[in-house]
Amino acid sequence: MADSMSNVGPTDSASAGRSAPALDDVGYRILSELRENGRLSMAALAERVGISRANAYSRVEALMDGGVITGFSAIVDHAKAGLSIGAHVFVTVHPQSWPSFRERVLAMPEVEYCAVTTGEHDAMLMIRATDVSGVHDFSTGVIAQLAEVRTVVSVVILDEVVRRPFILPADIPARAPAEQLGMTRWTPSPGAREPLPPR
């Protein structure tokens, strides 16, 4: 690895599958520093964390080999890069269609993020477009046309208030337990949804 980590790409699949090293305070401080500036040199990282350069190098290598750090990349302002519109696309998928649905989504360059969810819908896609018509074209002309998909709901994003690269356990404040339940709303599944096949 070079002294600067600016050109480090994602780890390969073999590395990502290895056992992650146990994270101690130094490990978390390394992650915190790299979150603020992923282009820190090893010398600068070592100085900020309070360890030797050799230790910093070996620690980062271990975090990458263990799959804790999966890569380094630039953070881009989407609007300034020409993609001024973002949208969440909520999708309901036909049961037994998940393998092919996943493969199709992985091949879609507009999709920045996709997650399987609980609630009324089965998956949420984050997409980017140059204008609102691009969101419409993707929702009705791409996703809704898939045989695996039952329903599609698109929500245009007006403003992204918070977008962090990742959070760490120390970021989560201690809070007193809620006095009563009922603060979270769980959306029941539609009655018409087919049951999932037995495993």
Rank of each mutant, 00 (worst) to 15 (best):
105 V>S: 05
140 T>A: 09
140 T>S: 07
121 H>V: 05
155 V>T: 11
169 P>V: 12
101 F>Y: 14
129 A>H: 02
151 T>A: 08
157 I>L: 14
104 R>W: 03
172 I>W: 12
138 F>Q: 02
154 S>I: 01
114 C>F: 13
143 I>S: 04
97 S>W: 01
130 T>S: 10
153 V>F: 05
120 E>L: 10
137 D>L: 09
143 I>T: 11
172 I>L: 15
146 L>S: 08
134 G>C: 05
163 R>D: 14
130 T>W: 03
140 T>N: 04
97 S>Q: 10
169 P>M: 14
98 W>D: 08
99 P>R: 03
163 R>M: 08
158 L>N: 13
125 L>D: 03
100 S>N: 09
128 R>H: 08
115 A>I: 11
156 V>Y: 04
116 V>A: 13
124 M>T: 09
132 V>L: 15
119 G>R: 09
149 V>C: 02
124 M>Y: 07
147 A>K: 14
133 S>P: 00
119 G>W: 03
111 V>T: 02
146 L>C: 02
168 L>W: 15
150 R>P: 00
110 E>M: 05
170 A>G: 15
146 L>V: 03
120 E>W: 04
166 F>N: 14
148 E>H: 02
161 V>S: 09
165 P>W: 05
97 S>K: 06
169 P>K: 12
126 M>S: 11
128 R>F: 04
173 P>T: 08
132 V>T: 14
160 E>A: 05
121 H>E: 07
113 Y>A: 06
167 I>A: 15
162 V>E: 10
134 G>P: 08
103 E>Y: 00
171 D>C: 12
119 G>P: 05
165 P>N: 11
97 S>F: 02
172 I>H: 13
123 A>S: 10
142 V>Y: 01
139 S>Q: 06
151 T>N: 12
148 E>Q: 09
102 R>W: 07
153 V>C: 02
134 G>L: 04
102 R>I: 14
155 V>I: 12
170 A>V: 13
119 G>V: 06
120 E>T: 09
137 D>W: 05
136 H>K: 11
161 V>R: 12
154 S>W: 03
125 L>N: 03
120 E>S: 06
155 V>Y: 08
125 L>S: 03
118 T>W: 07
167 I>V: 15
105 V>P: 01
158 L>C: 06
107 A>D: 13
109 P>Q: 10
163 R>F: 05
134 G>M: 06
107 A>M: 11
123 A>T: 08
133 S>M: 14
111 V>M: 04
133 S>I: 13
117 T>E: 07
99 P>S: 08
127 I>W: 02
113 Y>E: 11
149 V>P: 01
148 E>K: 00
169 P>G: 12
116 V>P: 02
102 R>H: 12
149 V>T: 05
144 A>G: 10
160 E>Q: 10
132 V>G: 04
161 V>C: 08
111 V>N: 03
133 S>E: 15
152 V>D: 05
111 V>Y: 04
143 I>D: 00
146 L>M: 15
107 A>K: 11
170 A>C: 12
135 V>D: 05
